[in-house]
């Protein structure tokens, strides 16, 4: 996973609320056994419009996306995060996210920034003409016009993003604790082992 600390660039002012994972990547793009190349299918229905933001000269390849409430709702498909990443997006800024999407984003080096609607409204305005700067270390979003918005992030997620951490390697360090839990489980709830069907 690519570590992330500072991202500066144009921000796509999408702004819609309840952007679901079927909009981010329609199901027919899920018929693959690879994680690669999903950017082509990202926002396919919106990009069917020739005047869409994503393919406009101004926003093509922009690293930041601004959206409304409940971004990434719906399916658990990690393909949504892969599609955003492949499109070049490193940061999403929205008032709220679905729980599954925000987890998937972090695991793919995409920072989900939570800011109140008033801040989103202001950033949408700035994004029309100017770049936006996101600093994960200081947990701030700034603009060339002295705007400065602080955001909260779970410390564990912050560490994973900054260090580009592989969670499985981290959990493997707890192998002894997992083994101890499994032994205790066999004593406490032995019926949990599935019966041989």
């Amino acid at each position: 996973m690519t570590p992330i600390e500072k991202v500066e660039g144009r921000a796509i002012p999408l702004g819609l609320k309840n952007v679901d994972t079927d909009v981010i990547i329609p199901a027919h793009w899920l018929k693959t056994t690879s994680r690669e190349g999903m950017g082509k299918g990202a926002f396919e229905t919106l990009r069917a419009d020739p005047d869409n933001l994503f393919d406009s000269p101004e926003y093509k390849g922009a690293p930041i996306l601004i959206a409304g409430d409940n971004f990434g709702c719906g399916s658990s498909r990690e393909h949504a995060a892969w599609a955003l990443g492949d499109l070049g997006i490193r940061v999403v800024i929205a008032p709220s996210y679905s729980d599954i999407f925000s987890g998937n984003a972090v695991k793919n080096g995409i920072l989900p920034v939570v800011l109140p609607q008033a801040a989103i409204d202001r950033l949408m305005e700035v994004a029309r003409t100017d770049p936006v700067h996101v600093d994960l270390d200081t947990q701030t979003v700034t603009t060339p016009f002295q705007d400065r918005f602080a955001f909260e992030i779970d410390p564990f997620r912050k560490m994973c993003l900054i260090e580009g951490l592989d969670e499985i390697s981290l959990t493997e360090k707890s192998d002894a604790a997992i083994a101890a839990y499994e032994r205790q489980l066999d004593t406490d709830r032995p019926w949990l082992r599935p019966a041989a069907a």
């Binding site: 994680r35 399916s75 658990s76 498909r77 990690e78 393909h79 995060a81 729980d99 599954i100 987890g103 998937n104 695991k107 793919n108 779970d154 564990f156 969670e167 499985i168 981290l170 959990t171 493997e172 707890s174 997992i178 499994e182």
Partner: peptide, 23 residues
């Protein structure tokens, strides 16, 4: 019971655990 992304599928296959914050 809850849905997980593919990275978490791999995590559960490898470790039978997940790293979670209480809801």
């Amino acid at each position: 019971a809850f849905g997980i992304g593919t990275s978490e599928v791999e995590h559960v296959l490898a470790t039978q655990t997940l790293l979670l914050q209480p809801a």
